[in-house]
Amino acid sequence: MRRVAIVGAGGAGKTVLANHLGARLGLPVTHLDDLRYDAAWDVVPEPEFVAAQRAVVTRDRWIIDGNSTASMPIRFAAADTIIFLDLPPLVCLWGIALRRLRYRGGRHSDGVHDRITLAFLRYVLGFRRRHAPTVRAHIAAHGEHAELFEVTSRRQVNQLITGLDSGGRDV
């Protein structure tokens, strides 16, 4: 694992996993929200967002966590590993609630971006039905060369981490 793309619904644990893997593997971590939004949480222009991702993926080693489906081809084509956190919506909502309790909203130095809106909650609730098929299509079209870890529970995420910590790679 030298170039890792992590995707999944909000609250699935992308940032926590990215930070853990980055520390474990000695890889720099980029959170897509840091590229997508400016300091005032305004969306940066699309060409700037795409250019920033292209700059990251040209590096030899990286982890990128985030969901922008429009730019998945950029990340997946360059990744040697794709981790798709396909957790149930209620598990993700619980993750969002815990994040709110822990961080009290806003933007934090460890990559956590805690901004809850009704649209965001709808996105999380409908992720498996509306967005997961698009993620899988992008993986098939642009990431067929990469090792894929598709996990559907927190237990499997923990098994993935444990496997990496013990030198294994199996989920």
Rank of each mutant, 00 (worst) to 15 (best):
M1K: 13
R2C: 12
V4I: 15
V4K: 06
I6W: 04
I6E: 05
G8V: 09
G11H: 01
G11C: 11
A12D: 07
T15W: 06
T15K: 06
H20C: 11
L21Y: 05
G22F: 07
G22A: 05
A23G: 09
A23K: 10
A23F: 05
V29H: 00
H31C: 06
D34W: 02
D34P: 00
A40I: 06
W41A: 01
W41Y: 06
W41P: 00
P45N: 06
E46N: 08
E48R: 13
F49M: 11
F49H: 12
A51W: 04
A52E: 03
A52G: 10
V57D: 04
T58D: 12
D60S: 07
W62K: 01
I64V: 15
S68A: 13
M72L: 11
I74V: 15
A77E: 07
A78T: 08
A79Q: 04
A79D: 05
I82V: 09
I82P: 04
I83F: 06
L87D: 00
L87I: 03
P88T: 01
A97R: 03
L98Q: 14
R102Q: 07
R104Q: 13
G105Q: 00
G105M: 00
G106W: 06
H108S: 01
H108A: 00
H108C: 00
H108I: 03
D114M: 10
R115Y: 13
T117R: 02
L118D: 09
L121F: 09
L121C: 08
L121K: 02
R122A: 06
L125S: 07
L125Q: 09
L125V: 14
G126V: 14
F127H: 03
F127T: 01
R128A: 04
R129F: 05
H131Q: 11
T134F: 10
V135K: 02
V135M: 04
I139L: 07
H142W: 07
H142S: 10
E144F: 12
H145A: 15
F149L: 09
V151K: 02
V151C: 05
S153D: 13
S153Q: 11
V157N: 02
N158E: 15
G163S: 11
L164Q: 09
S166K: 06
G168D: 13
R169D: 14
V171D: 10
